[in-house]
Amino acid sequence: MDLIILTQSLFNTDRMATFLISLIAIAIVLYTTYFRKNKKPFTIRKINGLQAVEDAIGRATEMARPLLYTPGWGGDIQRPTTIASMNILSFVAEKTAQYDCDLVFPTHDPIIMSVAQEVVKESYSRAGYPDRYKEDNISYVSSSQFGYAAAVDGIISRTKPASIFLLGTFEAESLILAETGTSINAIQIAGTDSTIQLSFFIVACDYTLIGEELFAASGYLSGNKSILASVQAQDIMKIMIAVFIVTAVIWATVESLSGTPLSYWWKF
């Protein structure tokens, strides 16, 4: 009987804390996005690697070689990281349109391919060069992890792109792509939310956007106010997190010193 009642309950009380914290987070994002709008503009700190983005595009143009952009095998369009990557793609595509530099975008997911086609096509029109857009350059190359890796490797070793952007969710293919890129002396800018692959990118690539930097990057590059507002919301939440941790640690220490068993109120 208990089980049935439990499954029929409309609200899962186990998730109360997450629900409340979600609401607070939502409130903060709404605040920075809508209510702070007319205050002085929010600026974010320099992020290493982002100044290099324009140089990388310029380099490809000067060398008359293509620029390769791929979002990795690990993500799908539902993943926020992929959305952040599409934002950066939009910026990069606008520049490649202006400089008339070839942008090659291989992906393992046909849905990402469809979205990327929309994004790039729109960026080319925005830049005023809709005729320079080549749909074939944004292509699907197998959903198999190492089929994708082999395909992108092939493109890298044959078209020899001057610059390579590896931005999205990567798995084991990360180092295969990054080392092949190194072997043809491409400038490589990587960024991912896959913590393990970060270590390979740090070792093999010229610039690496670490986790959250990838999300901030899209705001930094585009100067888009709404993205900057979210970055600000993230910072506010980070301060709250720091305050929470310090309070909880002091609490735990006092409890431990006074010999009372830990109350663990900070675990939820």
Binding site: A25, I26, V29, T33, R79, P80, T81, I83, A84, D193, T195, L198, I210, G211, E212, L214, F215, A216, S226, I227, S230, V231, A233, Q234, M237, K238, I241
Partner: peptide, 16 residues
């Protein structure tokens, strides 16, 4: 890093 990714994903999802 994970906390940061969580926050970045959260705000990106909200904007979406």
């Amino acid at each position: 890093i994970l906390i940061g990714i969580g926050l970045g994903s959260l705000t990106t999802s909200m904007r979406v």
